[in-house]
Amino acid sequence: MHAVIPYVVAAALFGIGVYGVLRRRNAILVLMAVELMLNAVNVILVAADATVRATLTGVQPEAWAHPAPEPRAGAIFALFVIVLAAAEVGVGLAIVLQYYRLRRAVVLDEVALHEHDHERVTA
């Protein structure tokens, strides 16, 4: 497999995620778009780690790194991103559900940032 394929897939995922964040009005769909962008970053981390390891095959670790790098460092960083994404989803969904309970809508265009903004919108 060419090293370019995962990078193109990750760029496409990230582009779709950016489009979703910029164009969607529903808060849940915006959270899903952010998840797409985080998954694109995971693909890049793992692909970059595999690419660097394939490039440095046969080179002694002392020649380019001290101390020797952890095995599959890209996958380890990807696990950290997955944990952060899970926390982001938990907090984000809690905020969206609380807002839905208060206002009965999750449309981002109608979100009042201040209480007097809500009074002006409903008046």
Rank of each mutant, 00 (worst) to 15 (best):
H2F: 14
H2E: 11
A3S: 07
P6F: 02
Y7T: 09
Y7R: 08
V8P: 05
V9Y: 07
V9L: 13
A10N: 02
A11I: 05
A11R: 06
A12D: 00
L13D: 02
L13M: 14
F14H: 09
F14V: 14
G15E: 06
I16H: 00
G17L: 05
V18R: 05
Y19A: 15
G20P: 09
L22M: 15
L22C: 09
L22N: 03
L22I: 15
R23T: 15
R23N: 04
R24D: 09
R24Y: 06
R25N: 13
I28E: 03
L29C: 00
V30H: 00
L31N: 06
L31V: 00
L31R: 02
L31S: 02
V34M: 10
E35F: 12
M37V: 12
M37Y: 08
L38Q: 03
L38V: 12
A40V: 04
A40S: 14
V41N: 07
N42M: 15
L45C: 10
V46H: 04
A47F: 05
A48D: 02
A48I: 02
D49S: 13
D49F: 04
A50F: 12
A54T: 14
A54D: 12
T55Y: 15
L56Q: 06
V59G: 00
E62D: 13
A65K: 03
A65V: 09
P67M: 13
P67W: 12
P67D: 14
A68E: 15
P69R: 05
P69L: 04
P71E: 07
P71C: 07
R72E: 04
R72C: 01
G74Y: 05
G74L: 04
A75Y: 10
A75K: 00
F77W: 01
F77H: 01
L84S: 12
A85D: 14
A86K: 04
G90M: 04
G90R: 01
V91G: 10
V91F: 12
L93P: 08
I95Y: 07
I95L: 13
V96C: 03
L97M: 09
Q98I: 07
Y99E: 09
Y99I: 11
Y100S: 07
R101Y: 09
R101F: 09
R103I: 00
R104E: 13
R104S: 14
R104T: 08
R104C: 06
R104P: 01
V106F: 09
V106C: 13
V107M: 04
E110W: 03
V111Y: 12
L113C: 03
H114T: 11
D117W: 08
H118K: 06
H118C: 02
H118S: 06
V121K: 10
V121D: 07
T122F: 06
T122I: 10
A123C: 06
